[in-house]
Structures are given as C-alpha cells and as structure tokens.
C-alpha cells in the first residue's frame, strides 16, 4: 500500500487503531486530533516500531471553521504531498444526550460529529479532486433509525452521512472514493466496563476491515456485517411497534 493517510481523531479508539494498521503497511501518516501531546507520544511509538514518517497536526473540531479547515488541509498536503487517504474517525457522545436533554450538549455534539468533519471532508475533496483518493467517514449504527437515546449523536451522524453522499454525487466524475462506515459497538474508553447487547469489537479489527475496503467501489459499509441485517429489520418494524421498543 503506497501513498499517505491522514486520520482525524487519531489519538484514541478506532483512529488510533487505524494509524497502527496503516503503519504496519508502511503508510506514512498524519495524526490529527485535539490532544497534541498524546499524538506526539503516538508518533514516537509509530516511528520506533515501523520506521515511517509521522506528522502531528492538532485540530479542534469543536471550534473549527471553514478558513481553519482550508488551512489545515493545505498544511496536511504540504507535510505529506502524496496524501491519498482521509479517515475521519473523531466522534463525541455524552451520557447527557438522552431525550430532550440532548439540547444541552447539542452544539458540541454537532460540531464534533458533523460540522467539523464535514468542513474537513469538503476541503479535502476539493484539494484532492484531481487524483485517486479515498475519503472515509465513520458513522454509527445509531444512525440506522432514530430513538430516544443519543438523539443529538444520531442526528449529527446521519447529517455527516448525507454530507458525504452529497460530496460523492458532486465529485462523481472525479476519481475520489467516498466511504461511510456504520460501526457497531467497539471496545473503547466509551464502552469500557459496560455490558452491551452485542459483542464489543476490537478497534484494530474494524481498522483492518476499513483498510481492506480501500479499493472498494461501495459507499456504505457495516461492521460487524450482521448490523446490515439488523438495520434492515429495524427499518421494517412499523412505527406502532417501534415506538414501544426501549433500547
């Protein structure tokens, strides 16, 4: 695997696992996240283990605006001029995002899950439109069908999905590939110690799956794959039954 990758949300969970999997393939990486110090530790580790070029670029999705996104993209392409893979894995969900309580954390939830990623993906697609590149956004199974819990999170993820699909339509004559990953429960700090209805997946397995799909023409992926079936079932349940479900 040649070329270079940028991972937005690289300091933890899936983003971190992606960086390590890409490094195993010898791919140079830009690590982007809010926490610069943690990224430097990671960069040292990746360089020691895999002898690749690693660049650290801090970015705060909560405060990012259009000009900030443009500058960030410019800087990324200067640091690694063969950049051809963009992964947006950053996400934020709060315990307070429950029913009408979602209003209290709506700005932050929207900024980190939708506005920031959308600004960056738009800017990257403009910059990379003349080359073969893959832009992947990590969504969630929460976006399958709305429910009373994690309202803000699910809404911002579905907004991101629409944004990516819109970009895919706009750039359909170019060689850009846009991918959306609806990922199930993952074994991260968010889910540590929690008992969940389904098995928690190791982020490195999800990362391996995403890397395998880099050449794929498909736009929407589920991981684990059985979530596609669950999504189909959930879509079939009539409202008068669905409204009674609590999950």
């Amino acid at each position: 695997m040649k070329g270079s990758a940028i991972i937005i949300g690289a300091s933890q969970g899936l983003g971190r696992a992606l960086a390590y999997r890409l490094a195993e393939h010898g791919t140079n990486c830009i690590l982007a996240s809010r926490n610069e110090e943690g990224l430097w530790d990671m960069a040292r580790d990746l360089t020691e283990k895999h002898k690749i070029k690693v660049v650290v670029l801090p970015v705060n999705l909560e405060t990012l605006d259009a000009s900030g996104a443009a500058k960030f993209v410019e800087q990324s392409c200067i640091e690694l001029n063969d950049l051809d893979k963009v992964f947006v894995t950053a996400g934020y969900v709060s315990e307070a995002d429950d029913g009408p309580g979602a209003k209290n954390i709506l700005d932050k939830t929207n900024a980190i899950n939708y506005r920031g990623p959308a600004l960056l993906l738009s800017a990257f697609s403009e910059k990379l439109k003349d080359q073969v590149a893959t832009l992947a956004a990590v969504s969630s199974i929460a976006a399958i069908r709305p429910r009373g819990k994690n309202i803000g999170y699910a809404a911002s993820k579905i907004a991101l999905e629409y944004h990516v699909k819109g970009l895919a339509h706009f750039f359909s004559r170019q060689s850009l590939r846009f991918q959306i990953y609806r990922v199930g429960y993952m074994d991260t700090g968010m889910s540590a110690g929690k008992k969940l209805a389904f098995r928690k997946e190791d982020p490195s397995r999800v990362a391996t799956f995403m890397i395998k799909q880099l050449g794929s023409q498909k736009k929407l992926f589920y991981y684990p794959r059985y979530w596609r079936f669950i999504a189909w079932i959930l879509g079939l349940i009539p409202w008068f039954i669905y409204k009674k479900l609590r999950f």
Binding site: G9, S11, Q12, G13, R16, N35, E37, G38, A90, G91, Y92, V93, S94, E95, T188, G189, M190, S191, A192, G193, K194, K195
Partner: peptide
C-alpha cells in the same frame, strides 16, 4: 471523546474475590 465511567464487577485472577466497582478507561 470522554471516557465513560461505568459500573462493573471485577474479579481477581484466581476468581476468589469479586468487587462491584466503577470502571474507566482513559485514553489520555
């Protein structure tokens, strides 16, 4: 992303002691 604090049961490796405790996995 902030880590969640959840309630869980942790056992000693020899399985003779169990504790109901809070659990957090910070990333930073």
């Amino acid at each position: 992303m902030n880590p969640a604090i959840s309630k869980t049961v942790l056992q000693s490796f020899d399985k003779t002691v169990s504790c109901n405790c809070y659990y957090e996995r910070p990333g930073e």
